[in-house]
Design a protein around this nucleic acid. Structure first.
Lengths: 229, 229
DNA sequence: CAAGCGGGCTACAGTTTTGTGACAACGGCC
DNA sequence: GGCCGTTGTCACAAAACTGTAGCCCGCTTG
C-alpha cells in the first residue's frame, strides 16, 4: 500500500535522516549505500520512487539514473536527484539523464516531501497520498477540500494544515508545542494556547450536532485525532 | 484491545500454526480458508491486519488485496502477503496491488512477527509500538490510552503516569517514597499518603466489579503491579 | 483485649488546564 | 479606502484534577 522509496545515499547521517523522516511520513524505505547496491535493490523490488544522491562511490548518481531508465522494469520509476550546491550547473545533465526532479542540498524535509508528492502525483497518480480518509471524514490535499459525511467542510488554511497533520498520524497525541512546530513552523513564535483556539475552530467546523468529535483532548498532554467510530 | 488479524490461508497446517502462534503473541485471530470467505469476514469485522496467502482457491491473494483496497472500510487495512519461493518475481505485482509487505515461505514466526509489528507501526501507530500489556490491561503511551478487557479506561495525568510506572516494573514493590520520586518527581514535595489516594483512584478506574485488582498492597512496604493471568 | 499502626475511602477546597467568545490586527480584493 | 475572511491573544468561565485531612476498619502487638 505505502509507496516504496529507495534511497541511494552513501553518507550515513543523511541516509538515516531520510529514512527516519520518510517512514514517519508513511513511506516504506530501503537504503542503498552505493550505486551498485542501488541497482540490485531496484531490481529485486521495484520501488515506486528513487531518491538518489548525485555523488556516489562506484557508480555515480547519473549512471544509476541511466541504468534504471535503461532497464525495462524500472524505466518508468520516478527519480529525484539530490545535488549539492555548486553542482547546480549539472542539473541539466541530471534531468537529461532521466531524473524527474532534483533537490538542492541542504533542503528541508518539508520541501522534499512536497517534491516527492509532486513527482508521484505526476507519474503515479494515486500513490501520492493526496486523499486521506478516516471514518466519514475525507480530505483531499490537492483540491484542498474536506468533507464529512457527504457535506463540504470549509476550513481556513491553518485549520486545514492542522487537520492534515493530525490525520497523518491518527491516534497519536501531540503536545501543543509539537503541533506548533509541525503546523505553524518551527521558526514562528505563537502562544501555545493558540493551538487550543484553532482546535476549537476546527471542531466547530467539523462536528455537526450529534457527530462524534474526532479530536481527543488529552489533559496536560495535547490533542490526538481518533479514527474509530 | 488486541489487534485483530485475519489470516487467509487454505493450507490447514499452516493456518492452524499461524493462528496458534499469533494468539500466543497477543493477537486476536480469525481464519478464512479462501478468498471469498476472506472478503466476507473482512467486511463483517474490519480487521487491523490481513495476512493473505498468495495462492488461494477461488479468489487469488492478489484479487483479495485489490478488493479489500477497493472497499471503503477496508481500504486502509494493512496487508501482508505470504508468497512461496519462486513466486518472488511476482512481488512487484503484490506490492503494486496494495500489499504493504510480503514474507517468503518458509518463514520463521519471529520474522513474521517483526514484519507485522513493522507494518502496524507504520500504518496504525499505536497498535504496535509503545504498548505495554499485562493480562487484560493494555496501555498505549503514544496514543495515551489505557484499556482493560475491551473498554476504554479514562485516567487523569497522574494516574496515567503511576500506572505506567508500575506496569514498567511488574511484580516489584515500591515504597510510597519511591513512587513519589518516580511519578511525581524528586523535586516536588507531597505527603506520602497522597500515593494511597491515587492508587485508590487508579483502582476504582481500573477495576470493574468482579475483576481482579492488579495492584497489590504490601503492608508497611508499598504497592506493586501484579501481572498474573 | 486494648492500643496503635497502616491503609482504604470520602469530602472538599484549591489549582491547573481547557473551552470559548470577543477583539484588534492583518492582508487581499474590489 | 472599506469590506471580508483569517489569525493570534486575552480574559473569563467551565471542567478536570490534585493534595490533604479526617474517619473508619482490620490487623498487629504487647
Amino acid at each position: 500500500m505505502n509507496p516504496q522509496v529507495l534511497v541511494v545515499e552513501d553518507e550515513d547521517a543523511l541516509a538515516t535522516l531520510l529514512q527516519y523522516n520518510l517512514e514517519k511520513e508513511g513511506y516504506s524505505v530501503a537504503v542503498a549505500r552505493d550505486g551498485e547496491e542501488a541497482l540490485i535493490q531496484a531490481e529485486e523490488s521495484t520501488p515506486d520512487l528513487v531518491l538518489v544522491d548525485w555523488m556516489l562511490p562506484k557508480v555515480s548518481g547519473i549512471e544509476v539514473c541511466r541504468r534504471l531508465r535503461g532497464r525495462q522494469e524500472t524505466a518508468n520509476v520516478p527519480i529525484i536527484m539530490l545535488t549539492a550546491r555548486g553542482e547546480e550547473t549539472d542539473r541539466v545533465r541530471g534531468l537529461d539523464t532521466g531524473a524527474d526532479d532534483y533537490v538542492v542540498k541542504p533542503f528541508s524535509m518539508t520541501e522534499l516531501f512536497a517534491r516527492i508528492r509532486a513527482v508521484l502525483r505526476r507519474i503515479r497518480p494515486g500513490l501520492a497520498g493526496d486523499v486521506i480518509e478516516a471514518g466519514d471524514i475525507s480530505m483531499d490535499r490537492v483540491a484542498h477540500r474536506v468533507r464529512r459525511a457527504d457535506r463540504e467542510i470549509h476550513l481556513g488554511p491553518t485549520e486545514f494544515r492542522l487537520l492534515d497533520y493530525l490525520m497523518q498520524h491518527p491516534g497519536r497525541v501531540f503536545s501543543r508545542e509539537q503541533l506548533l512546530d509541525a503546523v505553524w513552523g518551527s521558526d514562528v513564535y505563537v502562544e501555545a494556547r493558540t493551538v487550543d483556539v484553532h482546535v476549537g475552530r476546527l471542531r466547530k467546523a467539523l462536528n455537526n450536532k450529534q457527530e462524534r468529535d474526532p479530536i481527543r483532548t488529552v489533559r496536560s498532554a495535547g490533542y490526538a485525532f481518533d479514527v474509530n467510530a
